[in-house]
Each structure stands twice: as C-alpha cells, then as structure tokens.
Design a protein around this nucleic acid. Structure first.
Length: 217
DNA sequence: CTCCCGATAT
DNA sequence: ATATCAGGAG
C-alpha cells in the first residue's frame, strides 16, 4: 500500500541478510588516515579499488600527508597514479586539494559535508565515504553499484545519485547508513554484477523486483 | 549534457 | 569491440 513503509520493511530484511553474508565489511581502499582515504577515494572514480591499491602505497610513501602532496610536482604524481585513469584531472585535484587543506584546515581533513564538498575533486559520494569511515555519516554513499542495485531491487527509478541518497536516507535505519553501501558493493562485485547478474546465487532475490519480474514465471 | 581515461573481463 | 570500474567538473 504505502511504498515508503513497504520499502522500509523490505530493505530492513535485505540489510539483515547481507549483514550475515558480509560480516565485518569495511573500505577496501588502503589507508591509514582520513587524508589517505580522501585521496584514495578521489582516485577511485571510474576505477576498481584493486587498481587504486596498486598505486597508493607508492603515492603515500612519497607523499604521506597533505603537506608533502601539496608541494608535489604535477608530472611526478601523474606518473604514479597513471594506471587509475583520468590521471591528469586526478593529479591536479589531489595536489590542489592538499593545498586547500593546508590553507584552510591546517592540513587536516574537515569532518562535515559542507566543508568536504568544497575540496577540488570531492563530491557527495567521496565526502560521504570519508565521513562514514572516519567521522559521523551525514548521508549514504551512492556509487555505481548502489545506483544499479537499488534500481534493480525496485526502490528507485532514477540514476540521479542525490535523489537515490535522499530516498535511501528515508528508508534505511541509520545504523546501516555506512554498511549498506559496503554490502551493495560486495554484492555488486560478486553476485549482482553489472554485465550479468547471477540471480540464482543471490541471497536477496526474494526481495528483488528485477528477479521477480524477469527471472521467475 | 560532455569530458576526463587506463585496465580488465567478456 | 565493448561495457564497466567506490565520480566530479564545466
């Protein structure tokens, strides 16, 4: 009857199942500080976490904090992060981002959405990621997996990340705001794969509109 | 909306 | 060959 109330119950069940399936989830991006997670997340745009983790050990070894990265040469950074793609934009962003942190936040990463999205190369997705892992979440990370899976499940019918985030914040219990994204990412990589979803192996197929409409009957 | 862009699986 | 990967800026 009431879609929101119905969706609240359905996603609560889904969270319960995925929590059992993927216990102790956390970010797969290698990092030892908010600054490093921020940089790694900027690098992760349209790129796999595995690939980002191949370049960040060298990057963070040479430029461990905003202080070092702010004074880095553009070409040196480009060479290290080249394989992550969009390397010119990403190099420019993480260097000017480091400069901004030095000038405005003593080199530390701010802990609010309002301040984070002012950083060059940082939008709501990256900001939510840093907030959720190191501070208090102000929203829900909506990445490519969350967009695809929430549409397939039937919670939303849009590719607009902000619209999806607003709706998920209405229906997901706040205790799952951080982990729900991790669950969808794990499910998206292993089971609900973009090119070919493995619905037969899916633990939440009984709660999935796409499965009910296309796979059954 | 387009552009940025390399690595990988299919 | 083509779609996809923890997106963001103009």
């Amino acid at each position: 009857m009431n879609k929101i109330e119905d969706d609240k119950k359905r996603i609560a069940k889904i969270m319960e199942i995925l929590e059992k399936e993927y216990p102790n989830v956390k970010s797969d991006l290698i990092n030892t500080s908010p600054f490093q997670l921020l940089i790694a997340t900027i690098l992760s745009a349209q790129c796999t976490d595995k690939r980002v983790n191949m370049v960040t050990p060298k990057l963070f070894s040479e430029y461990p904090t905003a202080k070092e990265l702010a004074n880095a040469e553009n070409e040196d950074v480009e060479e290290i992060i080249f394989s992550t793609g969009f390397y010119k934009n990403k190099a420019k962003n993480i260097i000017s981002c480091s400069n901004y942190l030095l000038e405005n936040h003593s080199g530390e990463v701010p802990s609010t959405m309002e301040e984070l999205v002012k950083l060059p190369g940082v939008g709501r997705k990256t900001a939510n990621c840093v907030l959720g892992n190191y501070f208090e979440p102000e929203g829900i990370v909506v990445d490519t997996h969350v967009i695809r899976i929430t549409n397939l499940l039937g919670f939303v019918k849009t590719r607009n990340a902000e619209a999806i985030e607003r709706y998920l914040m209405k229906i997901i219990d706040k205790k799952y705001w951080v982990n729900s994204t991790h669950y969808f990412i794990r499910l998206g990589r292993a089971v609900c794969i973009a090119r070919r979803p493995k619905c037969s192996e899916c633990k939440i197929k009984q709660y999935c509109n796409n499965y009910k409409e296309n796979m059954k009957l």
